[in-house]
Design a protein around this nucleic acid. Structure first.
Length: 268
DNA sequence: CACGCCTCCTGTGCGC
DNA sequence: TGCGCACAGGAGGCGT
C-alpha cells in the first residue's frame, strides 16, 4: 500500500480527527521489536499540532517533538472508537477524545518513532529526501540536470528517494511506462527526463484522486481503500497487452525489485 | 561517497 | 494434499 498517494490519503483522512487532540496513553504490543517504536512514551500528554507528510513518511507534529510514522511494506494506520483486537496490531495511541490511533503491520517493517522536531538523524532516507514531486520544489530544470548526471539505472534512482520523494515500486513502473523509458536506462537525455518529470506528477496526482492503490491484503473493512489498481498500466499486468501498442507486458528484475514494462514502448 | 547485496518479518501462491 | 521456495507496495546496514 504505502507509497506517496497512499500515505497522502491516510494523512488527509486522519488530519481532521487528530488536530488539537492530546495523546493520553500508548501501548506497544510488539514486544519483540521495541526499537521500531523508539521513544514513543515521550508522546504522552503532547497535543497534535499538525499532520504532514514527506515522501512516504507521515509526520505528526507535537510541538518540540514529532512523531514519525513509516508504514514499511505492510503497515496501516487508522482511528478506532475502541482499540480493536485485530491481528498484527503493533501499537496503539490513546487520544483525548477517547479514540485510538491503531498501527497494524503484518511484516513489521514499519516504524513509529518520536524525534526532536526536524531531527531526522535516525532516519537517513528522510534526512536526504529529494523534493516533493507535487510541489514547485520539483522543478523541471534541476531534474533534467540530476537525471543526466546521476549514476545508476533510472529505476534505482526513482526508488532511492534522493532525487524525488515518495515513489515506490508501483509508481516507478507506472511513471516509466508513461514516459516510455526503460527502467535500466542511465543518464537520461533532456526530452526523456522531461517526459518522466511530467509522468511522475501525472501518475501520482491521479493516484491520489483515486485514494491510492490498495491490494487485497489490506481490505479488511477498517479503512476506505483506494481503487487506482484498476488504472495500473504495467504493475501486476504481466501478460496483458500494453494499452499503447498491445505488446504483452513482461516482468523482469531491476534494482532487486520486480519490474514491469512494455519491451516495445520502453526500449533500452 | 556510491553502489549492490543482504537483511529485517510474515504470509501467500506457485510448482513439483 | 503437502512441501519448499520465491516473492511481496521499503529502507537500513554492510561490504566493496
Amino acid at each position: 500500500m504505502p507509497e506517496l498517494p497512499e500515505v497522502e490519503t491516510i494523512r488527509r483522512d486522519l488530519e481532521p480527527h487528530l488536530l488539537g487532540r492530546r495523546i493520553v496513553g500508548f501501548h506497544v504490543a510488539d514486544v519483540r521489536a521495541r526499537s521500531k517504536y523508539r521513544r514513543l512514551a515521550n508522546a504522552r500528554n503532547q497535543t497534535i499540532r499538525a499532520v504532514s507528510r514527506r515522501g512516504k513518511y507521515l509526520l505528526v507534529s507535537l510541538g518540540d517533538t514529532e512523531l514519525v510514522v513509516h508504514l514499511g511494506m505492510s503497515g496501516r494506520l487508522f482511528l478506532a472508537e475502541s482499540a480493536p483486537m485485530v491481528k498484527h496490531r503493533r501499537a496503539v495511541l490513546d487520544l483525548s477524545d477517547g479514540s485510538h490511533l491503531v498501527f497494524v503491520d503484518r511484516r513489521r517493517f514499519g516504524t513509529l518513532q518520536l524525534v526532536e522536531a526536524g531531527d531526522y538523524s535516525t532516519l537517513p532516507t528522510l534526512a536526504r529526501m529529494g523534493p516533493e514531486p507535487l510541489s514547485t520544489e520539483f522543478a523541471p530544470e534541476p531534474w533534467v540536470t540530476s537525471m543526466a548526471r546521476a549514476n545508476g539505472s533510472v529505476k534505482a534512482l526513482l526508488l532511492s528517494q534522493r532525487l524525488v520523494a515518495g515513489i515506490g515500486n508501483i509508481y516507478a513502473d507506472e511513471a516509466l511506462h508513461r514516459a516510455r523509458i526503460h527502467p535500466l536506462a542511465h543518464h537520461l537525455g533532456r526530452r526523456p527526463a522531461l517526459r518522466l518529470h511530467q509522468a511522475i506528477r501525472d501518475v501520482l496526482s491521479e493516484a491520489i484522486a483515486h485514494r491510492g492503490t490498495t491490494f487485497s491484503l489490506h481490505r479488511d473493512g477498517l479503512m476506505n481503500e483506494g481503487d487506482f489498481y484498476a488504472e495500473l498500466r504495467v504493475f501486476g499486468q504481466t501478460g496483458t497487452p500494453c494499452r499503447r501498442c498491445e505488446t504483452p507486458i513482461v516482468k523482469v528484475r531491476v534494482a532487486g525489485r520486480g519490474t514491469h514494462l512494455c519491451t516495445r514502448c520502453q526500449q533500452p
